[in-house]
């Protein structure tokens, strides 16, 4: 049985949609199933294969017509994922920061200045606010969808906000690294080729930095797939199925 028309339709649909891979392939699989059912029904009603396929496709709607509604679900899923990992990252690193820095010998020989203390306190509170905001975003994209109409409108903003906070976070980390005596030098001195423990330090740094990149990439995807053009409100045309006259 030739499925060429259906195949190229699904391919075209796949090209015009983007978002979390599993959800996308799930949606495409379901669309293909639906088209296969429709072709079967038209064939059983006596139509030739080619004709049955184009009638099934006509019932399904053009890619331009139906893709925006699909893309909204994908954008929401991406925004939810970004917000979720952002919360995990911020909360985990907020609590781990003190612990990991102490081990490098920072502030072992002098007391912090007032300005330094003010900055760290300010940053601590900022981080808490970010976590609260991210939890709110998570609610909006989770249970909150019941109370928020068109929640996908916030997908793009979620991506931008996440990127902005990650940028601030990188700046604050760099500032703290430079302003804390013995922190940077403690890290550098613990890294040496002869010392096996330096592997752990490098591993620790990687574990610290990589999740930031992961969340950033998720946020960039969130922004890229949630453009107004992709989520646009295509009017669904009226149609009559030949099977139900």
């Amino acid at each position: 049985m030739s499925q060429s028309l259906i195949d190229s339709y699904i391919t075209e649909m796949g090209r015009s949609l983007s978002g979390p891979r599993r959800l996308k392939s799930d949606l495409l699989l379901e669309a293909r199933d639906s088209l296969t059912d429709a072709v079967d029904a038209y064939r059983d009603a006596g139509y030739a294969e080619e004709e049955a396929q184009s009638m099934a496709l006509a019932d399904f709607g053009t890619v331009a017509e139906v893709a925006p509604a699909y893309q909204r679900e994908l954008a929401l899923a991406q925004a939810r994922r970004t917000a979720r990992w952002f919360v995990v990252l911020m909360a985990a690193q907020m609590f781990l920061a003190d612990e990991s820095w102490r081990s490098t010998g920072a502030w072992s020989d002098q007391d912090p200045t007032a300005g330094y203390l003010f900055f760290t306190r300010f940053w601590d509170y900022s981080q808490m606010i970010f976590v609260v905001v991210a939890v709110l975003a998570l609610f909006t994209f989770g249970l909150g969808v019941r109370y928020v109409s068109a929640p996908w409108r916030f997908a793009r903003a979620t991506g931008w906000l996440t990127l902005a906070v990650l940028g601030l976070k990188a700046l604050a980390s760099a500032a703290l690294l430079l302003a804390t005596p013995n922190l940077a030098s403690g890290m550098v001195s613990s890294i040496s080729l002869t010392h096996p423990a330096s592997l752990f330090t490098l591993l620790g740094l990687a574990i610290w930095v990589l999740p930031n990149w992961y969340v950033a990439i998720s946020a960039v995807r969130c922004v890229a797939i949630s453009t107004a053009r992709r989520l646009g409100t295509a009017e669904l045309g009226r149609r009559r199925s030949a099977l139900y006259p």
Binding site: E30, E65, A69, Y70, L236, R240
Partner: peptide, 18 residues
């Protein structure tokens, strides 16, 4: 007449699930 193409049904189902 139904003013919904078949392809419009699936996002509705996902939304209802959400």
């Amino acid at each position: 007449e139904l003013d919904l193409p078949t392809g419009g049904l699936y996002p509705i189902l996902r939304r209802l699930e959400r």
